[in-house]
């Protein structure tokens, strides 16, 4: 609770937000972890998107493309799951 209060009280809560402690002098791992977290939270993406102005038509295109990709990925995952499923009615379809 207090940590939330501190995060909210400060506009730029340094050394408490976006911070990773280095363990066993393993700096590489700490960097990787923080990069991973930033990537997952969409912070790096937002940073890259706001380097240059994106015209509205580009935004539309990008969003549409993302949608298409998401649909394709979801269905491909479904398809792969379907093909790799274990308990089939007919173990080897087409080989009667």
């Amino acid at each position: 609770m207090f940590i939330t209060a501190r995060l909210l009280a400060n506009r730029h809560p340094q050394f408490i937000a976006r911070t990773v402690f280095v363990q066993n002098n393993n700096v590489d791992d700490a960097c990787r972890l923080i990069n991973r977290i930033l990537g997952k939270e969409g912070i790096l993406e937002q940073y890259r998107l706001t380097r240059y102005y994106e015209k509205p038509f580009q935004t539309r295109r990008r969003v549409n493309h993302e949608r298409c990709k998401a649909i394709y990925n979801e269905d491909m995952e479904r398809k792969i799951k379907f093909v790799l499923r274990k308990n089939r009615h007919e173990p080897f379809p087409g080989c009667s």
Partner: peptide, 11 residues
Amino acid sequence: IVSVTDTTRVS
């Protein structure tokens, strides 16, 4: 190095 902090300015 004790900690690594990211202070990239993102809005």
